[in-house]
Design a binder for these strands. Sequence first.
RNA 1: GUCCCCAUCGUCUAGAGGCCUAGGACACCUCCCUUUCACGGAGGCGACCGGGGUUCGAAUCCCCGUGGGGACGCCA
Length: 464
Amino acid sequence: MTVRTRFAPSPTGFLHIGGARTALFSWAYAKKHGGKFILRIEDTDVERSTPAAVQAILDGMAWLGLDYDEGPFYQMQRMDTYKKVLQSMLENGTAYHCYCSKEELEALRESQMQQGLKPRYDGRWRPEAGKALPQVPPDIQAVIRFKNPQTGSVVWDDLVKGRIEISNTELDDLIIARADGTPTYNFCVVVDDFEMGITQVIRGDDHVNNTPRQINMLMALGATIPQYAHLSMILGDDGQKLSKRHGAVSVMQYHADGYLPEAVLNYLARLGWSHGDAEIFNRQQFCAWFDLDHITPSAAQFNSEKLNWLNAHYIKEIDINLLASDITERLQANKIAPSAAPCLNNILALYRERANNLNQLAKDIAYFYVLPTASAEDVGKHITPEIIPAMQTLSEKLTSIDWTAEAIHREINAVVTQYALKFPKVAMPLRVMLTGTAQSPSIDQVMALLGQKETLTRIQSHLA
RNA sequence: GUCCCCAUCGUCUAGAGGCCUAGGACACCUCCCUUUCACGGAGGCGACCGGGGUUCGAAUCCCCGUGGGGACGCCA
């Protein structure tokens, strides 16, 4: 049987880091087994679903390079199918109408909680042989409930958590269609997983409790039960649960924050999954290695430091032209247009080795295209009155040489010798004058890239 | 409250009864490289939640605690 996995987000917000990992694992599992990966948008919550959120999910997946073989399917467009299944369940007695009002149910829940019981529907409208049902109230629109088995238990062998058994006495008759007739989550999932032939359901472990209900419905529909793999949640950097208010950032936020998708992907892959000691691996390698056996059942805490480390790695690795176009966008976002003169590719070749963030990288090289302003502190510390004569001499020497890093280096050395100084005594003021900061790669290389004219202009402006 | 799940360095993890004096990675510390800051290289610090079993032998299996988390919607 060919593997078919799916990612089924609800479009009520952006694609966050936990959802992205779920998608990644489902995607990788399908790739690994030569199967199909399906994207299904679970938009049956009309109140909260938005087209913007759908787009955000699509964008997030595209950015990470998670392509799907089928879909996106939208549940709201599959109403006819659900209605049909609902009707047949009503007919064969696996579902029934319930006329309880929301207030009635609320009261029931409350009293059960008070008694220390697990709140659940008491089955007052559940048809039973020889049981008299209440009078149908005229003013209430019925919901449809699934007639869950009341004895026995549901058992499945979870691919990450192992065997899980839940007694049917823990379950109640859940609502599968609202009063307005729209089907609810648990029902749509079941119908879709069945009809789409999903073989492995890989999802967050907040769904563990839904699984027995879904299995019961699947059985009522005569479906083959898929395998389930429940992934533990991802905690924030501080060990706290991720929430909209607390660190659950959109994957696109990582793009905005200067991360390469390769780094985020690699990081996410290692969060809860491992392949021996392997830490760095690309998409292809991951797909070849991925399996459900090496997923950790416990929750994982997000660690930005490690993401930074991976980002640094991929900034070094990425194709220089791709890096240049990314950095160009970031420069432009800061109203800086990289000109042809100092070649961006060459600048990046020099700077990528030391960067771990694209925004920082763009910021660090901005001085090539826009005149930097050094802090008074750096100026005062490095451009001292004593060094001015040496700088003046250097400036003169630099006017008549071949503009290469080697030649520049020779001239600096000559001045260092002439004035009996240490190399940094000359290099540091140059750094401050040319880059506006006290940190940069080798100053001779910086000068070579900056160009003779611009270099001399900047030096002179500090000597005048 | 009820049900379910989880538990190895600060963090991510390796670990399928002897390969474990518990390995790797991030972070941190030291040193080296050096033209500043980084990068890179070499070292270092640092963990099996507790208690009982089972076994010749347990990080690994079982039980009980403890701690954490999740679920209990006409949300998904």
